[in-house]
């Protein structure tokens, strides 16, 4: 069996997986830069593969840069999720600038999907900017939010407006952990609205960079009341889906 590589060129992170005989033999990720193809070169240096499939915002650029097939993140996450957890019927992927809700069939085919429009409201980038506005390192942002006893409601989903709202709350003396919890809650309610347009009743896989955020994951579990599976590295699901797709074709 051949070595199949999958690369997910996302807005915030580039992820690489190589599988050989069904085993993952390479897994790498790095924060995206202004030069995504340069970073792809760096990740692929010394990595041998027979086929490569790309997804993510840089997929078409990659296709022209190195020979390879491209698939959408929707398909990549569906294939990857079905492989990791055959029981899951819905995938929620919250990445750097997109939120995607996908219902999948057992083979990892996309049944239906919903995605945000051009605005990056309620995505990973939103969380990063809100953390910075509150003076948190991103890693401590979710932890602090979970410690809050109440959530200060955040009304704006637009990153720029929400930042103004946060600053206004800070100047009113609202504890920042309460604002942090409010921000996390607003992300979750938005994600649930997108999920509602496809399906909320099935076992859910939560993937993408935001799935690393323990507060968002915890709130999702509470709100949805269904089993929520978070894979070991939720950022790699798309790259894995690409590698599996390459192996199939």
């Amino acid at each position: 069996m051949s070595r199949s590589a999958g690369i997910d060129i996302g807005s915030r992170t580039i992820k690489l997986i190589v599988i050989d005989n069904g085993e993952v033999v390479v897994r790498k990720k790095r924060p995206s830069t202004y030069n995504p193809m340069g970073l792809c070169d760096y990740l692929l240096e010394g990595v041998s593969y027979d086929t490569i499939v790309a997804t993510g915002y840089g997929r078409h650029l990659f296709k022209n840069y190195r020979k390879g097939e491209v698939i959408t993140e929707l398909k990549a996450f569906a294939v990857g999720a079905a492989h990791i957890a055959p029981s899951c019927g819905t995938v929620l992927d919250i990445g750097g600038q997109d939120t995607k809700a996908i219902t999948i069939d057992p083979k990892g085919g996309v049944e239906r999907f919903e995605m945000n429009d051009k605005c990056a409201a309620g995505t990973g980038r939103f969380l990063e900017i809100m953390a910075a506005a509150l003076g948190f390192r991103y890693e401590e942002f979710a932890q602090e939010a979970r410690l809050a006893s109440r959530a200060e409601p955040i009304n704006n989903m637009c990153t720029v407006f929400a930042e103004s709202e946060v600053i206004s709350l800070v100047t009113q003396g609202v504890p920042r952990s309460e604002i942090a919890l409010g921000i996390h809650k607003s992300i979750v309610s938005r994600a649930i609205n997108i999920l509602k347009r496809v399906s909320t009743g099935r076992t859910l896989m939560f993937a993408g960079g935001v799935a690393l955020n323990s507060c968002v994951a915890g709130l999702l579990r509470e709100e949805l009341g269904v089993e929520v599976i978070i894979p070991d590295d939720p950022q790699l699901v798309g790259a894995l889906g690409c590698a599996l797709h390459g192996q199939r074709s």
């Binding site: 698939i71 929707l74 999907f113 429009d117």
Partner: peptide, 19 residues
């Protein structure tokens, strides 16, 4: 400004038809 997102959504639709 939204060509990237539109491309993903439309390609996704086409993929789901050809599934």
């Amino acid at each position: 400004g939204d060509i990237g997102q539109l491309t993903t959504r439309i390609e996704g639709l086409i993929e789901s038809i050809e599934r």
